[in-house]
Design a protein around this nucleic acid. Sequence first.
DNA 1: TTAATAAACGTCATATTTACGTTTGTTTGT
DNA 2: ACAAACAAACGTAAATATGACGTTTATTAA
Lengths: 245, 245
Amino acid sequence: MTPNKILNLSVDCVVFGYDTNTKSLNVLLIKRYLESDTTKEVLVDDYVLTGYHVFEDETLDNAATRVLKELTGLTNQYKKQFKAFGNPDRLSDEKDLIWIQNQEFNLRTITIAYYFLLKTEDVDVQNNKYKAKWFPVRELPELGFDHQQIIEEAHDDLKTKCLAEPIIFELLPDKFTINDVQDLYESILGIEIDNRNFRRKLINKKYIIPLDEKQVGVSKKPAQLYMFSKDIYKKMYHKNYLINI
Amino acid sequence: MTPNKILNLSVDCVVFGYDTNTKSLNVLLIKRYLESDTTKEVLVDDYVLTGYHVFEDETLDNAATRVLKELTGLTNQYKKQFKAFGNPDRLSDEKDLIWIQNQEFNLRTITIAYYFLLKTEDVDVQNNKYKAKWFPVRELPELGFDHQQIIEEAHDDLKTKCLAEPIIFELLPDKFTINDVQDLYESILGIEIDNRNFRRKLINKKYIIPLDEKQVGVSKKPAQLYMFSKDIYKKMYHKNYLINI
DNA sequence: TTAATAAACGTCATATTTACGTTTGTTTGT
DNA sequence: ACAAACAAACGTAAATATGACGTTTATTAA
């Protein structure tokens, strides 16, 4: 009756960070390490998402939140569980045999994948204990396991979701310019948008509120700053029910 | 080192079926059974989704497909993995202790939830070995475990998705009337739509193709039949990139 | 023949989108 | 002080889409 395959449950976190200055949508990755019996050493030269085993009495959401906090120190960031990855062969290049009480077990790892949205600048990568690094979403390094696929699916989900919900503002600072928003949409979607039409469309939204402030420290005409009001947004007609097929 | 909590991996399937005649969006449910030591008997009077343990060398997608086939005999139906449910307390009313080799284990079940879209009429519920039954999505019976929540989240996902992609046609017969499509949208979204505007909008789509056929056997003016062309749809501007926030 | 009914078509005002052109305010170089 | 450079910000006109309705048509049942 003893199973020869043991399940392992983990969460993996795709941390999206947007950098308003470089206009780059980034993913936070760490170098892949493997623990050998006696020492910690780098065995492979690629990057992976951060993830961790889900504790016995922990919810999936809490595990993801814990992983993000451990990696970045941040809490209360936008989080979405978007897909579970659990193919039997998905960690085939990881050592997948373990021994428990003189019996050999095969390990199957199911990962529940989340993505987080935050600002690149909010993470101190200089002093990061995992040596986490930001990579532009279109210039990813060699990735371990199936993490390339996980990032792609997270990105696809984000593309769809940012068209239907104002999650874009999770990636921007509290005060932003109209062009910041446009640049971000262009980064996420990989398209070009007409600035004049986009500006008009955004400015007409009741929940995009102009501030009595302008950009500082720019060497051109400083742009008007705006903020997003979640309260006003929620009070409006949402869900919108616009059939767009 | 032996864990005292053992993971169990399953898939649960929310089978949505639409009935063009009664204009009802339904969910396929089965009576909940529990196996006691010696006999199979009904211990609780509620319904559950169909689901099953994921086999050792089976992908999650294949497990879901297998469960649907076992339940309905159908293959090749529209399928979407929409959420994993794995809170440690989620099956608290199930007996969750198992014994392996004289050790007591606590069982934690992670379920990967899928929904399927099909036509109610395609399932023979009369001779169904699980005595599966259709329930209108707004008149669900008492549900076991967290299956009420799973169905609600499936329904929410379906609502969002049917606005952005033409998955609605997975729920309709190959030949349908404009009013069939409208009724289906109204069933899913729980809203009323102006028939004249909806009709105009749909007829103008290049991928909604009028056939040389009309309804038969109706006691009013028979309606024009249409089909959906997936090919034409794919060739058009999709993804659509309409920012609708 | 007519009443009843759902299908199908039409109209008009308003809103939104698309595709551009123009003006404005600020910094930097002369 | 002035002009060049440049991004921000505003403007316009045509085409398309939407929302809110009224009207006509084809069919069955009485």
